[in-house]
């Protein structure tokens, strides 16, 4: 049912990653994603993979849960890999690089194709894992809070960062409530014989009217009530507002920062010094001989 859609995939825990300052997490995640696109060789990609593995291990989030975040992109992953394998021709080294050729050369697999396929796949998986680690270890509220803090310099351009963040927090907070509400209204209309499952697109769209109108009505009512409740508690926006939970950078955040900096340096260095050799050796060992 509708309830099964999990939103905000926070996985409760007390690991180092859970306790880190969300601002630092956000910045580091962003930086890591950038570095994923910086790395050009397998050696530097390996550094990213290593860092991802360490992060997963530190987070205490079970592998099963991590795999769940990869599942939705599996098709995209396979599709990109296949496209790369069959349509990227060329070589990453000198010499004979055509690995397989059949149907009189209509289908060819070159080493560059396999190289790019593997490379992109690893990169996408690492990207998804790293960014879902952020949401696994940080509640949506903490994330918006961190975002608000990080974006607060934008105030000088008269952008209402606090208001935007508050809107986001409220929206996130009300998603489960809305899901419950939809379920309730759906049941009530089904009890009056509403048919939501059969019929063509037009009929189905029409069948949604009895659900969306009550939903809109109650959402507006809820919004007014919430606004009133906030006003009653003297909410006047971000001006002069203090926080109950202060975000503080601690020693561990600095340590994580330095570790990530070290890895970043490693990536840059390896980009220069280990071009494609690792991959070529890998290719030689496993493919050339088999074929």
């Amino acid at each position: 049912m509708i309830r099964d859609i999990t939103f905000g995939q926070y996985y409760p825990g007390k690991s180092l990653l859970h306790r880190m300052d969300p601002r630092m997490k956000l910045v580091l995640t962003f930086a890591l994603i950038v570095f994923m696109f910086v790395c050009k060789s397998f050696a530097s990609l390996a550094v990213i993979v290593l860092l991802t593995v360490i992060a997963v291990a530190l987070s205490g989030v079970p592998l099963k849960v991590i795999f769940k975040s990869i599942k939705p992109i599996l098709i995209i992953l396979i599709f990109t890999a296949l496209l790369n394998i069959f349509y990227t021709h060329g070589t990453v080294q000198n010499g004979d690089a055509l690995w397989i050729s059949f149907l009189n050369g209509k289908i060819e697999i070159w080493d560059k194709g396999v190289y790019t396929a593997v490379f992109t796949m690893v990169r996408i998986v690492a990207l998804v894992v790293i960014s879902s680690l952020l949401t696994y270890t940080t509640t949506p509220t903490m994330l918006t809070d961190a975002l608000e803090r990080l974006l607060s310099p934008l105030k000088i351009f008269h952008i209402k960062v606090h208001t935007l963040a508050m809107m986001m927090t409220l929206a996130l907070r009300f998603i489960p409530t809305l899901i419950e509400e939809i379920e309730r209204i759906m049941n009530a209309q089904k009890a009056r014989g509403a048919d939501l499952e059969t019929g063509g697109i037009v009929e189905r769209a029409k069948a949604l009217v009895p659900i969306f109108i009550p939903l809109m009505v109650s959402s507006f009512r809820r919004a007014y009530e919430l606004a009133l409740a906030m006003t009653c508690r003297c909410y006047t926006g971000g001006e002069g507002r203090t926080r109950m939970k202060q975000m503080k950078m601690k020693g561990r955040d600095l340590v994580c920062l330095f570790v990530c900096l070290a890895f970043a340096a490693g990536i840059i260095v390896l980009n220069y010094f280990a071009k494609h050799e690792t991959f070529s050796i890998f290719g030689m060992l496993f493919f050339k001989q088999v074929i």
């Binding site: 209204i185 049941n187 009530a188 209309q189 009890a191 009056r192 014989g193 009217v209 009895p210 009550p214």
Partner: peptide, 20 residues
């Protein structure tokens, strides 16, 4: 199953929220 919806009329708590 369809007939059961019409044979047994169910009126939920706060049914006014189903008006549309």
């Amino acid at each position: 199953l369809r007939q059961s919806r019409f044979k047994v009329g169910l009126c939920f708590q706060y049914p006014e929220y189903q008006l549309f």
